[in-house]
Nucleic acid binder design. Structure first.
Lengths: 143, 143
DNA sequence: CCCCGATTTAGACTCCGTCTAGTTCAAATG
DNA sequence: CATTTGAACTAGACGGAGTCTAAATCGGGG
């Protein structure tokens, strides 16, 4: 359940132990998928991860990529970012931060939470708890 | 381009002029779709709108429902809410507010912006402008 | 009443993601 | 070292949301 967030760049041979730290059995495919996404701070869709793997001559099935990214998100190794109705992004950066999404070209960038004070978050209804608070600034290109 | 937000409930016969105020030609189908969504503060997916229309004996094609809701959002008559990777919600409430989304049961509720001060929003990159700032509090059921 | 651009339509199609059922893998066991 | 067993992986079918296309229809201006 790893307390500290990992640092970039992550060395390929550090991945198995990283996965274990998050309670994930480090299989060949999971290591490859993690290496693809976690090599730097970035936002990739499942499809993009699959494409990169294929391009690098690594053969992993579509189902495994989708399942594995879902597992990573569930275990908080990566973060899901839902800003585009068409696809889910997976964010290799798990430190608290928010996002700026360019609706026109699909660019997604991180912004620090520093100074973005968010006061008075309402109590969650009975029987529920807050999982995340996501702030998305949607921008568009002028003209 | 209507400045003031409309008030609920909206009378059915007030819809044609409301559409015109937003630069939308009020056709039969658009009036029906607007009436379905705007009758009260609510969040509906395109599919739900289509279902309600069908249930009320109003026949509108799927393509028209999707296109029309997209048009309404583009003209700021309604607001798109992207919180679920599976579908887009359309929000009849266009006043500034944010959302609490229950990931487990798909419930979406509005929260007032009052007291939720958000300071220090970063400048948008050159050549872009901020369209919306969306805050989504994701909650889950305990147990 | 006719014309013509705007709107609507049915249904095919695309794309993201899930499901299924069979296969492979690897670790533990005998 | 062979066997067992459950987890993980796979290919490909499938499902659902949303888009596209080409044809039909509408409705306001002439």
């Amino acid at each position: 359940m790893a307390s500290a967030t990992h640092l970039f760049p992550i060395r390929h041979d550090a991945i198995p132990s990283l996965l274990q730290k998050y309670g994930i059995v480090p299989t060949t495919q999971r290591i490859e998928i993690a290496a693809t996404l976690l090599c730097e701070r970035q936002h990739l869709s499942a499809d993009q991860v699959l494409k990169r793997l294929t391009e690098h001559g690594v053969s992993v099935s579509k189902a495994t990529v989708y399942n594995t990214l879902g597992l990573f998100a569930e275990r908080s190794l990566v973060r899901q970012v839902i800003v585009d109705p068409a696809k889910v992004f997976y964010d290799s950066n798990t430190e608290p931060h928010h996002h700026v999404y360019n609706v026109d070209d699909g660019t997604l960038i991180d912004i620090d939470t520093a100074n973005m004070c968010l006061e008075q978050i309402p109590y969650p209804p009975r029987g529920t708890f807050v999982e995340t608070v996501d702030i998305v600034i949607r921008i568009r290109n002028t003209v």
